[in-house]
């Protein structure tokens, strides 16, 4: 049962993500990205991490995608320009091919180094990602520094956005 659900969610996530980049209409891309996020959240549920799943929906499918939608709507980008001018020259293409090959090689190398023991089935570990209290305690004790730094980063981004918006007006 779990395996079937996994393959269904995984297939939806992969297909939707592929369709995102295949769309001419940015609005459809946004909607497909939401579908992809929803499928990922389903995978989190299967991993026994309901909190992560719901956070995925609230933060990504909810907040961030609404902002995407806003941008697409306000820019009135109904369709992408039909004729995409080739911005890459013949040399650019060669560089792109080399870079993507390098990326593929890196990815294969990285995945080959992951041993199955990394994903252990230790119930103590799965318990730690499903309990909100333990996540909270972890964030505010062990990972307090990273957490605070992240919030400062977000604050800086917000201030930056305000400054840029002020300049334009």
């Amino acid at each position: 049962m779990d395996v079937i659900a996994f393959y269904v969610f995984a297939a939806i996530a992969v297909v939707a993500s592929l369709l995102v980049i295949g769309q001419r209409n940015p609005m459809h891309s946004v909607m497909l990205l939401i579908v992809s996020f929803g499928a990922l959240s389903g995978l989190y549920v299967l991993l026994d991490a309901p909190f992560t799943a719901v956070t995925q929906i609230i933060v990504y499918a909810g907040a961030i995608m609404v902002l995407f939608l806003f941008v697409v709507m306000l820019l009135n980008a109904h369709t992408e320009d039909e004729v995409v001018p080739p911005t890459l020259g013949p040399h650019g293409m060669k560089v792109a091919v080399v870079l993507s090959l390098a990326l593929a090689a890196e990815a294969i190398w990285a995945f080959s180094r992951i041993s199955p023991t990394v994903f252990s089935n230790d119930p103590g570990l799965t318990g730690s990602i499903s309990s909100v209290a333990r996540i909270g305690a972890g964030i505010f004790t062990t990972h307090a520094f990273a957490f605070e730094v992240t919030s400062v980063l977000i604050l800086v981004a917000m201030v930056g956005a305000v400054v840029i918006a002020r300049k334009e007006a």
Binding site: M27, I34, V66
Partner: peptide, 26 residues
């Protein structure tokens, strides 16, 4: 009975906005 029920309500109400935005745009 989900152990994060309150968040589920919150998450799904935030999904409802898509119906209205899409209706307006499309």
């Amino acid at each position: 009975d989900v152990n994060v029920g309150i968040l589920v309500v919150f998450a799904i109400t935030s999904m409802g906005v898509y119906g209205i935005v899409l209706a307006g745009w499309s």
